[in-house]
């Protein structure tokens, strides 16, 4: 199972990176979502894999999975929703303001001085 999960995280990461490197904002957002899955799974996996031992205390049961990564990942999932929402809004705002969803354009002239 460990190899399955590790390879799943790897595939999600690879797909995420590939999509993030695209030229338009929408695939970048989808890529970020995939990377979010990968990161959350990775954090979760740092508690090691355990089957049928949820961290809910029961009488007569004395082995549980690691609850700490789960708590951290739970908030991470919710926060990543917030992040996705902000990024979507940014992409939408940029598209509507500029009429283009290209994210590869370098600014033409940012007015930076060359000298001291």
């Amino acid at each position: 199972m460990e190899l399955l999960l590790a390879s799943a995280i790897g595939v999600l990461t690879a797909a995420g990176i590939y999509l993030v490197l695209r030229l338009r904002s929408f695939p970048v957002i989808v890529g970020l979502a995939l990377l979010t899955y990968a990161v959350n799974l990775f954090l979760f996996a740092s508690g090691r894999l355990v089957v049928d031992m949820p961290p809910v205390l029961r009488d007569g049961v004395d082995s549980y999975t690691d609850p700490l990564p789960q708590a951290l990942v739970l908030t991470a999932i919710v926060i990543s929703f917030g992040m996705t929402a902000v990024v979507v809004m940014l992409a939408l705002g940029a598209y509507l303001s500029a009429g283009d969803d290209d994210v590869s354009l370098a600014p033409q002239d940012d007015g930076r001085e060359g000298g001291a």
């Binding site: 460990e2 999960l5 390879s7 990461t13 797909a15 996996a45 090691r48 894999l49």
Partner: peptide, 12 residues
């Protein structure tokens, strides 16, 4: 992806 797979597996 390969790097992440390796890292995750090594941890797991």
């Amino acid at each position: 992806g390969a790097a992440v797979t390796g890292l995750t597996y090594a941890i797991l």
